[in-house]
Nucleic acid binder design. Structure first.
Lengths: 196, 196
DNA sequence: GTTTTAATGGAACACTCGTTCATTATACAG
DNA sequence: CTGTATAATGAACGAGTGTTCCATTAAAAC
């Protein structure tokens, strides 16, 4: 046969994800990506096809990573609800510094992209966010079965509520990243009215 | 003297605001703006100086409009707290359709702009968001004096909480604009734990 | 060692970007 | 009317955009 690619595909997507995550879709140029992932246009286009497709792979990679984090939190926790709480705490607090952005990349994309100019990418982002919400719904249903939440509540409504809280907190953290206040708000999510 | 400008400055800013609001800073090109506001580059640059400055004027115009809406809600309400509730309802529900975006333009900007590439505009957006929060804090303090809220609460913390809720709801509405669910969540903001 | 095949590098393309500026058009003063 | 001051126009600029192309390179297969 012939030559085999010398770069690691996942490593490249990881770097591309970090750049898209911090600068956004429109704020990231192919030149930016070329230097960040240290590949020339020929290699990038042979491997990923287009800027749009690389973005699609990046946001899917981001969503998969987040899914793994959630899974890990559930496995190391005694109950479904404590696992979910741990996940939220890690998502919001551990992203305050160091990461490309304290905001969720999926939410940033949904905020930036438009129905008219970037329909395909926007729909992908919406789909990934809906996946997370479905996962939340499953976890909440499990917590109901475990007796941690009243069974007469609507699981999918509580899942929506969790989404609103995480989106709100992570976005707000970009302006006011007071760890104490944020921790307080996280504590109150499950004490608040929809849950009681 | 000489010729006098024939376009209406506020009308132009209004149109620019709507475009920036829907497409974002990077997603809006000067060509887009030229056709939207029906002015040639010469006139735009003579009047506003640069794309950045036009954006700055636009986001300030947006913030001023939002401020006026809040003021109107307060004036037509019996108490400070009911005025604030009305404002939130109008912000979230009335923006679901028709407007350039159901999301807050200030939040969209904070999400899109970066410290490294657009520091000045980002800081402006942060400043405007902080202004709103300060106004919330004043309203809550007034509500405490009117006996609507326990005086032992921290007004600025409750103001933060309101911000998180509005940001979360308006962003979430972009994905799931179920009016019934959103209305329910709005009702629960002031019943939720930080307020009781 | 030769052939085969695909990955790589990087110049270059057509286009769009934000912006400038010489020119033209218009309204008022004299 | 004419002169003058200023608003409006739109072609044009250099830089940057996403993308293409292909000569070169390098490794696997025979």
């Amino acid at each position: 046969m012939s030559k085999v690619a010398k770069f690691n595909r996942e490593e490249v997507i990881d770097k591309a994800t970090n750049l898209y995550w911090s600068k956004g879709y429109h704020g990231t140029s192919m030149r930016n990506l070329q230097t960040a992932i240290d590949l020339r246009p020929g290699s990038i286009y042979a491997t990923f096809g287009s800027k749009d497709n690389l973005f699609k792979e990046s946001i899917n990679y981001y969503a998969a990573q987040t899914g793994e984090l959630l899974q890990a939190c559930l496995e190391q926790s005694a109950t479904a609800l404590t696992g979910l709480k741990l996940f939220i705490r890690k998502l919001v607090i551990d992203n305050l510094d160091g990461k490309p952005s304290c905001m969720c990349m999926i939410v940033k994309s949904i905020s930036e992209l438009t129905e008219t100019d970037n329909k395909e990418l926007l729909d992908e982002a919406k789909r990934l966010l809906a996946n997370v919400e479905n996962k939340f719904s499953e976890i909440i249903t499990e917590a109901m079965e475990q007796g941690e939440i009243d069974s007469d509540k609507d699981a999918s409504e509580l899942a929506s509520y969790i989404q609103v809280q995480i989106i709100g907190l992570r976005t707000y953290a970009r302006v006011n990243n007071n760890e104490e206040t944020i921790n307080k708000f996280i504590d109150e999510i499950f004490i608040g009215s929809p849950f009681h």
